[in-house]
Design a protein around this nucleic acid. Structure first.
Lengths: 218, 218
DNA sequence: GTCTATACTTCGATAGAC
DNA sequence: GTCTATCGAAGTATAGAC
């Protein structure tokens, strides 16, 4: 892991600013991420934001890269787990992840540099999910025309994100039903069985960690 | 329709401001909705915003009410149509509607007055969809335990919204597949047949127009 | 209802001392 | 790397003339 050395025992200002920005984004939305508020949350002076980041967009990109990095690691673990599809569902259902993701989608809607980064990562991330589903379906004899992996990946993520957003607004109508529905589907597509080694799955894992990952800036 | 009289031939400043605000929200996100930018888009002076609306939150609420009103009317038409479920899908798939809705969800995440209004309307709106699905399922003999109407309503809307947001970011992976998947499902649940009168469906329609609609302020 | 003028706040960003 | 000081831009909102 190339970036790990950078994060060992690091609690420096830069990291704290990125963490504060991420927290603000999740709790109060991207519009609350101002240099002053971020600094205040990190217990630092506002001017330090501009020392560590050329502009606020750069700060957002740093939050994005950090999120993408963490998501990739979680996805690695999910793919390597006993029931990768079930693990994937748990992963994308995480409220923090889903809320942060939708804040970035909203932000991407009106900031060009963010849009490019979000689109780039979303594409890569989705394609890994599609390969996983594709692999699982062929192992289980699921029809690829009746249940196109690309559609299923999109649908799973849509549902997870909606559940998270609605829950954070205090809405819960249909949530329990929807979760049961998805889980029942997952149990059919990926029944419990003993762990196995799959060379294809290992290749998938290598692909994600390598190709086109977040580019370290320094 | 109680509010109609208010909108006959009206192109007054207030309406133009609301329209400009809505457009800005869709095109550049809620953060772009400032008194200056809204006024500029409407060809008016910024101070007029504060004459017509006590605060910016009031402006957002006006946009919300207008959107809710229009959505209700569209939903009325969808419920009354030949294939209400198919019409519902077309309705929630409309890009403008979906993008505006997700902007409001994001806005609701960090403005308390907006949150209350959005939650209130979302609840009502969803419950009408659930009743429609419930009715359609029982007419078609679809199992309500295997396909809980509440879950299906949530899932349909999730997919539609995700497709709209991703499309506006230039992402299209799996979109065609997902649309085909949903349409195939709709064709099974609600096959083409001759129009009919359903007293239950008419009651549903009346419920939506009446109970708890947007409250006129003056 | 619409205008001008303006008070006040908060923001992003930079310069320069230490 | 962190601080003080500060600029200019943009935001919300109000007062008062017409």
């Amino acid at each position: 892991m190339a970036l790990a050395s950078r994060n060992i025992g690091v609690d420096d200002s830069r990291t704290r600013l990125v963490e504060a920005a991420e927290q603000l984004m999740r709790e109060e939305g991207y519009a609350a991420v101002t240099s002053r508020r971020v600094a205040s949350k990190a217990g630092l002076k506002p001017q330090l934001v501009h020392y560590h980041f050329r502009s606020m967009d750069d700060l957002f990109l740093a939050v994005s890269e950090r999120g993408a990095q963490q998501l990739s690691e979680h996805l690695d673990r999910a793919l390597a787990s006993h029931q990768p599809l079930h693990s994937l569902w748990e992963l994308i259902s995480d409220r923090n992840t889903a809320v942060l993701a939708s804040e970035f989608l909203a932000l991407a809607n009106h900031r060009r540099t963010i849009r490019a980064e979000v689109a780039r990562y979303a594409k890569r991330y989705r394609s890994v999910q599609i390969e996983l589903l594709s692999l699982t379906f062929s192992e289980c004899g699921i029809s690829r025309t009746l249940y196109p992996p690309a559609a299923m990946a999109l649908i799973m993520e849509s549902i997870a994100r909606t559940l998270a957003i609605e829950a954070s607004l205090g809405l819960s109508a249909g949530h329990a039903d929807a979760i049961r529905f998805v889980k029942r589907y997952l149990d059919i597509v990926e029944p419990v069985r003993s762990p196995r080694k799959s060379s294809k799955r290992e290749k998938l894992l290598a692909d994600l960690s390598g190709r086109g990952g977040p580019v370290p800036r320094k």
